[in-house]
Amino acid sequence: MSTTPTVMNQSKRSPQSPVQAESTVTLDPPLMDAQTAIAIDSFNAYYGDFQALHDLHLDIPEQQVTAFIGPSGCGKSTLLKWCNRMNDIVPIAYATGTLKVGETNVLERGTDVVDLRRKVGMVFQKANPFPKSIFDNVAYGARLHYKISRPELFDLVELSLKKAALWDEVKDRLKQSALGLSGGQQQRLCIARAIATGPKILLMDEPCSALDPASTSRIEDLIFELRRQFTIVIVTHNMQQAARCSDRTAFFYEGKIIEEGATEDVFTRPKQRQTEDYVTGKFG
């Protein structure tokens, strides 16, 4: 792997892009004191007797992209899944401490997970569209949560697909099976599907790890475009990706957060030795 400065060079985008022009303005200090979207405090997560995460403290700011990086098995996906309680599917998983989304501690027993997951959408490692039409896939979440008329649903599907930069490619074949799309298109469809329920936060669990470089780049562009509309948390193994599309980065190692800060600082001026070793490719 190349040295850190090169990583940062790769993150510069073509100057023609209006998104880029906007983001260069907004990337800087004013955003750094943004509101907190997810507040994690004294958080411990367990799978049965195994403790996956140890005493985490982390504030994830609103309307920014936060990247979780770290070697496999360091617990970054576990934390992500606790943010919308997807770990409920695992019978032996439990967690202690506080994990606040807005004002509610989602770890509390009485949390309405259905409503939580509507507000906190999730995009998975492997694109997982339903074996239904493209339209029905995007409409799925809206139909779950809302009483919605047919024309409104059409508008919602169109808007969601446009936000996910997929509309132009699929507008003529909305009735066709989503399984006929390419891998990258399927992943953007999943993003559109997550957007369609109107979430505030989008969790992405290695969204590009199963995609080719061209599709990866499209998804990254998309994350860049969505960054001011949603709070995005992305787990990635790809450090260039974290450097390219995130505002803040948290480095996980063996169930602990070693370092957290603005992406530029973490990659160019890491405070911890382990972070530096990891981002420069000495291990992991």
Binding site: V114, F124, N128, F130, L144, H145
Partner: peptide, 23 residues
Amino acid sequence: TLREAAFGMGATRWQVVRGAVLP
């Protein structure tokens, strides 16, 4: 992954069964 997708959208257990598993 289908179950995860449906749960992730905020489907209830029954909605997951009805909309994703049974079909």
